[in-house]
Design a protein around this nucleic acid. Structure first.
Length: 571
RNA sequence: UGGGACGUCGUUCAACGGUAGGACACCACGCUCUGGACGUGGUUAUCGGGGUUCGAAUCCCUGCGUCCCAGCCA
């Protein structure tokens, strides 16, 4: 069986026929002789999600396709929000996805001293000043979208005073919020990001890597372009919301007289329907226990998808299919599901599992007899071989596979009707046994001994094939069925329109735990991470909670279900 | 309202002045010991209005719509 180990499949280094706009740029630069350096720059303040997977595939993918390298750089410039737990999870997730940063693991915090020195350089050249306004005062002076800002009275401080103040900021002489270092650009710029943006702020806080050696921390807009420059990044790929920051990015690189000039290129982030993607909201789901942790299989996090049973290959395929462009997009979750199905169809061995058992007694089958049937492990993979499955007089089938009064398009078992038990025999339902309340508790059927293996020698056909499991041999297990986490395609906007919060739109049926499921014996000892197709039901993955003899499986995704569609239409 | 960006099938990505194409979804049919997979066929799109051109999704003008920016977050 295939498992969840981080075995890393090779990434296809061949670019696709028609290049996206980012690759067009990179290809042209590479053709002109540039050696390509990109970077994936997460802030360690949360777990990675499927949106990051797209960024990772682009950042690392572009690098490998053009013979370059991609750095993993943690943008850890805000100590109050960041934590090592997150850096560890991020590294694990990137690696699991199949990418390797070859030891090029960097941190913005590695550059604190250098960044500081460059800031002093800015001050010396009259390009930055210490502003002693409060945050409120700075905001009040910034102007609005339509009105220009007003110069701070501290804007004209001399170089020596600025240098002295900045050094004392570093030395810890001032309380949080009393001073900031600002770039001296243009308070009247129509681009608000250029109205003397803050470069450094005072934060007497421990940093997860530098401890208490610093009490001033650089802002993203200052640290990011310089980190790129220091690392020799050629193409700094990021999402659309940074487009308006690009003039500032370029300003910082230029005014700090960096030895290398990286280029920022923005593309549209990935959005998925029926979920939320912002780190803040995901954190909220975890903190308020609406889900069972960052790796809850309903979460769009990489760790959640992994626990759910998604393969790294399917996620990479998904990212390749959604493409790279500048248009805002919302991808249908169905595409992600299609990608796992396609991958798992070829790779996942089959097994039989009955989720909602209905007992079947074969009245003409000898009591105490057990037959061993050879069953194909994966019809899509000839190398997968066969396994032995026990068959006996008492079996379980799926409750959904029987109807006493079947509608016209229902092909499965019904009174008097003959169907095939997968890989076993043709059986005919003779009698329905009910309890006092009228509920169906057992079916009494006959089997045709001449149909062993599932084929009728007289060539007669049946319209349905059911999965089953031998009652005496089955192992009891728990199966967790997942559905979309939210009931609205776009939980944020739907909540806004109806005056609710996104939490009000959580799908109450997103998790359905089934106990007393009857599983084929081999499933009782499958290690966590084992992926398998339960025939006719879907792809499942042994959960972290699984234990020998007490298996727990997560449904990764159901099989496409034409009958469900037909049945829904009839209603 | 200032600035920046974006508008192509239901969704998403292509077409780079020369037949609007792929994928997912959807519909029909075929095949099938998984109502799965697979195969075949099909429906549906260039935001509006002007212009340039033999020819415009593509270039120009104009209108409309959507998104982003007023953190000492990233």
């Amino acid at each position: 069986m295939s498992t969840n180990d981080p075995a890393v499949p090779a990434v296809d280094p061949t670019p696709t026929a028609s290049l996206d706009f980012v690759r067009e740029i990179v290809a042209a630069d590479a053709a002109a002789g540039a050696s390509i350096v990109t970077r994936f720059p997460p802030e360690p303040n949360g777990y990675l999600h499927i949106g990051h997977a797209k960024a990772i595939c682009v950042d690392f993918g572009v690098a490998v396709e053009y013979g370059g390298i991609c750095n993993l750089r943690f943008d850890d410039t805000n100590p109050v929000k960041e934590d090592v737990e997150y850096v560890d999870s991020i590294k694990a997730d990137v690696h699991w996805l199949g990418f390797d940063w070859a030891g090029r693991e960097f941190y913005a915090s590695d550059y604190y001293e250098r960044l500081y020195q460059d800031a002093e350089g800015l001050i010396r050249r009259g390009k930055a000043y210490v502003d002693s306004h409060s945050a409120d005062e700075i905001r009040a002076h910034r102007g609005t979208l339509t009105e220009p800002g007003i110069d701070s009275p501290y804007r004209t401080r001399g170089v020596d005073e600025n240098l002295d103040l900045f050094r004392r900021m570093r030395a810890g002489e001032f309380a949080d919020g009393t001073h900031v270092l600002r770039a001296k650009i243009d308070m009247a710029s129509p681009n608000i990001n250029m109205r003397d943006p803050v470069l450094y702020r005072i934060r007497h806080a421990d940093h997860h890597r530098t401890g208490n050696t610093w009490c001033i921390y650089p802002m993203y807009d200052y640290a990011h372009p310089l980190s790129d420059a220091y690392e020799g990044v050629t193409h700094s790929l990021c999402t659309l919301e940074y487009e308006a920051h690009r003039p500032l990015y370029d300003w910082v690189v230029r005014e700090c007289e960096a030895a290398h000039t990286p280029r920022q290129i923005e593309f549209a982030r990935l959005n998925l329907n029926y979920t939320v993607m912002s780190k803040r909201k995901l954190l909220q789901l975890v903190a308020q226990q609406h889900v069972d942790g960052w790796d809850d299989p309903r979460m769009p996090t990489i760790s959640g998808l992994r626990r759910r049973g998604y393969t790294p290959e399917s996620i990479r395929d998904f990212c390749a299919r959604v493409g790279v462009a500048k248009k805002e997009n919302v991808i249908d979750i169905g595409l992600l599901e299609h990608c796992v199905r396609e991958d798992l169809n070829k790779r996942a061995p089959r097994a039989m599992a009955v989720l909602k058992p209905l007992k079947v007694v074969l009245t003409n089958y000898p009591e105490g007899q057990v037959e061993t049937l050879a069953v194909v492990n994966n019809p899509e993979d000839a190398t997968a071989g066969t396994r032995d499955v026990e068959f006996s007089r008492e079996l379980y089938i799926e409750q959904d596979d029987f109807q006493e009064d079947p509608p016209k398009k229902f092909f499965r078992l019904a009174p008097g009707r003959e169907v095939r038990l997968r890989n076993a025999y043709l059986i005919t339902c003779q009698e329905v046994v009910k309890d006092a309340s009228g509920a169906i508790v057992e079916l009494r059927c006959t089997y045709d001994p001449a149909t062993r293996g599932g084929d009728a020698p007289d060539g007669r056909k049946v319209k349905a094939t059911l999965h089953w499991v031998s009652a005496a041999h089955a192992v009891n297990g728990e199966v967790r069925l997942y559905d979309r986490l939210f009931t609205a395609e776009n939980p944020e906007s739907a909540a806004e329109k109806s005056g609710q919060t996104f939490l009000d739109l959580l799908n109450p049926a997103s998790l359905d735990v089934l106990r007393g499921c009857k599983l084929e014996p081999m499933l009782g000892t499958a290690p966590a991470g084992t992926r398998v197709q339960f025939e006719r039901l879907g792809y499942f993955c042994a959960d972290l909670d699984t234990a020998p003899g007490a298996p727990v499986f997560n449904r990764t995704v159901s099989l496409k279900d034409t009958w469900a569609k037909v049945a829904a239409r009839e209603v």
